[in-house]
Computed example of a mutant assay.
Amino acid sequence: MAACLLATGCSAEFDGVQDLPLPGGADLGDDPYRVTARFDDVLDLVPNAAVKVNDVAVGRVSSIELADTDDWQAEVVLLVNGDVTLPADALANIRQSSLLGEKFVDLSAPRHDGDTARAPLADGALIPASRTNRHVEVEEVFGALSLLLNGGGIAQLRTINQELNDAMTGNESDIKRFLSHVDHLVSDLDAHRDDITAALDGLNRLAGTLADREDAIEGALNDLTPGLAELRDQREQLVTMLESLDELSDIAVDVVTRTKDDLVADLDALAPTLDALADAGQSLPRSLEILASFPFTDAVLDGIDGDYLNSIVEVEPADGYTPPIPLLPLPDEAAGTSPSGGGDR
């Protein structure tokens, strides 16, 4: 009978005393759920350690194993009472019950603005290392304090204090003036905080607009690439052209310098003509309006009824003018003929 009991006990998995439940542990209820949390460092956390929410034990640590990742993280499986509801983005921290007490896992909800509804933490959920952390241990605090005291930290503070005193001695007025300027600057910034906020909002809108037009900007940059490549290939020609323009400008300046006196004399000679044109005022453009239609100007056409205009032009020859001899006799002077070529009737 004892052999049977021993065989039965050996058939079950028993890794040691740590598999035995601790007295006074949390009540897991009838339907606990599992949560896996990954830590970069679990300190000396052991299986069957408590899992608490708001310092109330609601579960225990089921197992601690090395996670199947390349980051050398610890994977801690937690058993939580099924009646405890936590958000899906819950945080897990390793804390210490007292100064020399045991380690436990503290589960908490992250702080969010507003009272938004969140999905609950489900069975088999994973809390990544980005939402886990651990508190500083007493040994680490004492180690840092020992480094400060034994490594010359106090002496360094004394040196810093001495240097500050040496720097400020005799410069009190300058330091006060500097602090006054700083106070004035801070006051100006505070007075223009609405403008600064508006500018930041404008930058935010600009960034949003650029983000919405990312494809268009990318297309424009891609279209600029061939043009930039062409400019790069023609760099020597462009440099030669600019050098030629520089030489041309030197020649132009030399020409203008040499012809300055003649140019000024021409402008002085042109001044009376320009003055006369300016004195003509509106008479010149009005004369140019009727030049092409003379003598039938617009003013004459408005006073004529119908579509035709009859005019008589008298031409008087100048004194001493001799009319030219006609090449052919006039019809009335032809002897014995009529204008039609017949005889007298």
Rank of each mutant, 00 (worst) to 15 (best):
L149Q: 14
N150V: 08
P295K: 03
G170W: 08
K52Y: 08
G114V: 07
L78F: 02
A2P: 04
V300P: 02
L200Y: 03
R134G: 00
E289F: 03
Q156V: 10
D27Q: 04
A37L: 03
E333S: 15
E333L: 12
A207R: 15
D68Q: 11
S97N: 08
F104E: 09
T209V: 11
A271C: 00
C10W: 13
L231H: 09
A117K: 10
A280H: 02
G219E: 12
S63P: 07
P110R: 13
H135R: 09
A299Q: 11
L200K: 02
T209Q: 14
D233W: 04
L6W: 09
P295Y: 01
N133W: 01
L189N: 12
R193L: 09
N133V: 01
T85W: 06
D319F: 02
D106F: 04
A2T: 08
N165K: 13
G342R: 15
G219C: 00
D190Q: 15
T116S: 13
R158E: 15
G124V: 05
G227P: 00
P323K: 03
D89T: 06
L221E: 05
S62D: 15
L20N: 07
D68I: 01
V255N: 05
P329F: 08
T197Y: 00
V256T: 07
L22S: 06
A191E: 14
V76R: 01
V253H: 07
T209S: 14
I251G: 04
P272R: 01
L43C: 03
L330D: 13
P87K: 07
G152V: 02
R232V: 06
D195V: 07
A90H: 00
D89G: 09
P285Q: 00
L126M: 10
A271Q: 08
P339K: 15
R34E: 12
V17M: 14
L5W: 10
D262M: 03
V186W: 04
E102A: 14
P21M: 08
S340L: 13
S283F: 05
E75K: 12
D279H: 01
L242I: 12
L145S: 11
L78T: 02
M1N: 06
D212Q: 13
N310V: 03
N222F: 00
A155W: 02
